[in-house]
Nucleic acid binder design. Structure first.
Lengths: 195, 195
DNA sequence: GTCTATAATCGGATAGAC
DNA sequence: GTCTATCCGATTATAGAC
């Protein structure tokens, strides 16, 4: 139940974000949203046309936050490797998974272009941003010249998204951390990578 | 609707596997299972105690299949790199995602130890099997000696699981393929990986 | 803006006839 | 083993009073 300092529509959006993260779109009912937001049915249907509309507002906000968080790691100073490492090693609520990525497993989200759009755009943006960092790294000689920026960017994002899967399967963040360590070893320009 | 050549309980399990893959546990109703299996409610509750019981049978079978498919790639001949590449590049229904991995985003699956167990065990087994291959590779000089087998194994599985996320977000297998290419570049012992 | 009432459908299951 | 009937709560709203 959220503070009364937030407006009703704000509380509804925040409650929806929370529940979408925890239970996904199919698993989140209007009633649960209303209870967590401390709002009645009338309020919800006054501010939003229905569950999809509210979910859209929630997903857009989550996408915004995710961009900002990634940019904070990637826009900083340091070598390409350091910025990528910073992104991979930043604090995460590993066992909760990615609030945006988890939605891709939701058939009702994938089937709705309006709901899928912010998810796609944000992951695309992230890959693009990482590809730029990798490209800078190869140009400056900080990373192997053999790397294809767009491919490595996809590998990095996939390792994070898949790391969540492994962590949730085992009930421990250890597998996520292992995957990240493995990727950093593979990227590390200072490691002796010859057999 | 499955062939009448299968027994009713077989059809129920296959229908459940299909729907769990497509819609997850929360999104799959007994009624939908019965319709797809061509079975009545009575049949379902005769053969299984309820939705969780049926889901358990379905998940166990899917886990078996996944192990067998991975083993087929990893147990073959070839260098460590070749076997890992074979596993990563084998044909997949990328846009459908991983039938086991997707369950980790389902809160009701994660909350139920009996349902989560086959998911955890199978992904653990896969990581272990890949770690063995990597270890063989480092010992034989086919892969960099700097690699920590368990970490690289986690990276490989995570790249696949996360690749599904990227593919589903964008509605195209391209991002999955890019992530795999990136990982193979990073693993490739013949690539010049010095800056 | 928020509340309560009402409603049609679905979800998950039990009971008992055949 | 399979079928139909029945049940109760949840889901996703709509209508209208306050």
């Amino acid at each position: 139940m959220y503070s009364g300092l937030m407006s009703t529509s704000e509380r509804l959006i925040e409650a929806t974000r929370e529940l979408l993260w925890e239970r996904g779109y199919v698993g989140t009912s209007p009633k649960a949203i209303q209870q967590l937001a401390g709002a009645g049915q009338g309020s919800m249907y006054h501010h939003f046309t229905g569950k999809p509309d509210l979910a859209l507002a929630a997903v857009r906000r989550t996408a915004e936050e995710m961009r900002a968080a990634a940019a904070a790691s990637l826009d900083g100073p340091g070598t390409a490797y350091e910025r990528i490492a910073g992104y991979l090693l930043r604090e995460r609520d590993v066992l909760r998974g990615c609030p945006l990525g988890r939605l891709t497993m939701d058939p009702d989200v994938i089937a709705d272009d309006r709901l899928r759009a912010p998810v796609e755009e944000t992951l695309d943006w992230l890959r693009g941003r990482l590809a730029s960092v990798v490209e800078e790294g190869t140009e400056r000689g900080e990373l192997s010249a053999a790397l294809v920026p767009a491919d490595i960017a996809a590998t990095i994002v996939a390792t994070v998204q898949g790391g969540y899967v492994l962590a949730r399967a085992s009930g421990s963040p250890a597998a996520f951390d292992a995957g990240v360590r493995g990727l950093l070893t593979l990227l590390d320009p200072s490691a002796d990578d010859r057999s």
